[in-house]
Design a binder for these strands. Sequence first.
DNA 1: TTGCTCCTCACGTCACGTGAGGTGGC
DNA 2: TTGCTCCTCACGTCACGTGAGGTGGC
Lengths: 179, 179
Amino acid sequence: VAEQLPDDGRAESVEEGALLTTGEMARRSSNTLRTVRFYEEEGILHPVRRTEGGHRLFDPRELERLTLVTDMRSAGLSLDEIKHVLDVKQRSGSASGAAREATAILNRRIEALRDKLAVLTRLQEDLTETTNVMTACLDCTDSAFPHRCESCRVMVQPSLPRSMRVLWSAQGCRSGGTG
Amino acid sequence: VAEQLPDDGRAESVEEGALLTTGEMARRSSNTLRTVRFYEEEGILHPVRRTEGGHRLFDPRELERLTLVTDMRSAGLSLDEIKHVLDVKQRSGSASGAAREATAILNRRIEALRDKLAVLTRLQEDLTETTNVMTACLDCTDSAFPHRCESCRVMVQPSLPRSMRVLWSAQGCRSGGTG
DNA sequence: TTGCTCCTCACGTCACGTGAGGTGGC
DNA sequence: TTGCTCCTCACGTCACGTGAGGTGGC
């Protein structure tokens, strides 16, 4: 098990109390302490300062940055790609240039996201359809199981979902023997 | 660059020609040769046989298995989780038991997929909204750029998308100096 | 003072990537 | 025979995970 995070609970004072610890950053973004530290090492996050004891303190706006990074990671972007996106404004000399480049990058990312969403939606539908079809197997006592399911009326249907074909075919129960 | 894959093109004969090479498996599933080999080492894919020269030959049904694995990986499942799913039928003693366990596992996966789809959809919308808002910056020549964008009327709007706030704030252009 | 939180190394892991160097097969 | 495809090591990489051992701070 990883280092534990406590649960939340206490108001903050106005000036310094508004700063977030590594643990608060981690908890509020559903990341681990290690990930927050790693992102700092990588130059993605920047604490405003450290306490005397070396504890990082972050501006609340870094939390918003962290949640964006987290979602982009979940969408499959590498940290280098994310750094590139986060650095557009810095790199560009003019507002219009920065806006143009940012828009171009984001549009490519939106396209990739659209494709990924399509794949995952199809997978979700495929798995759901398999659970539906599989209800017909819940009371099965046929001795065809597990080796001859493929000739069963349930499996002979046209347009069986892919995950049903893969999970329930004879390949779904390899002999594993040595011969 | 990785090992190159040629493009497709030639019909197969009936018996042996119906078998797929590693390259065909890779190309038709948008994976690399290395990934197909790796999945075989991991026991996820099984060639029907090897040629005398050691070339793997796969049953076309292994391609369907591979595409399912590929989509599940894209959905964020680990190879161990995928092996677990693929092995349900094998593990279970009865058809009803296998169907029950498979349904339970798939339902958990469908739930996780639903959550992931929600996150990615929100991200897509957020990025899209940022490209919309950013059109207002395409002709900007204001000297507020890049350090005081936050007081610009474009940035002062309520309900600015998160990615706009993160990319266009003053944090979006760190000094990076040594002092 | 006790506990819980945070710290820094530093090695481990997962899922492949990336050559090097060699052979297969139409 | 030429080229393109596939092969096996084997080390590298990315994004962290996982302790070990120690300190901070209310």
